[in-house]
């Protein structure tokens, strides 16, 4: 599970580089996210634009990361592709995350 992190102002941006977050990648994703978010920042945005598939294990891992960062930094998501968006919508987890259309929109908006 490849993730790339950059600091944009006071916002930590983490970009998922693989095209799937599934049962085979979920544990590694969670561990890498825990390491990468150890640096202080005002906000954390996870850019999922390259992720074409996320299953319930991947969703669970994203929720786990959200809980790891709470309550100081709510995990924000950006760039959901159609299948990923559908999994969030069908499980109603789209109601608990701040979801930006794209990374640029997320960075423009105040957390």
């Amino acid at each position: 599970m490849q993730l790339e992190s950059t600091m944009q102002g006071t916002t930590l941006v983490i970009r998922a580089l693989d095209d799937r977050i599934d049962a085979a990648a979920a544990i590694q994703f969670k561990e890498r996210m825990r390491d990468l978010t150890a640096v202080p920042s005002a906000r954390v945005i996870l850019d999922l634009a390259r992720v074409h598939f996320l299953d319930s294990s991947g969703l669970g891992a994203v929720v786990a990361v959200m809980k790891l960062l709470a309550p100081d930094r709510p995990l924000e998501l950006a760039g959901l592709t159609p299948t990923v968006e559908k999994v969030f919508r069908l499980t109603r987890m789209d109601t608990i995350f701040t979801i930006h259309r794209g990374l640029e929109a997320g960075l423009r908006q105040a957390g």
């Binding site: 299953d55 319930s56 294990s57 969703l59 669970g60 891992a61 929720v63 786990a64 959200m66 809980k67 999994v87 499980t91 987890m93 608990i96």
Partner: peptide, 8 residues
């Protein structure tokens, strides 16, 4: 509930 499973 912020459940990490049970969605499948």
């Amino acid at each position: 509930e912020l459940a990490e499973g049970g969605f499948g």
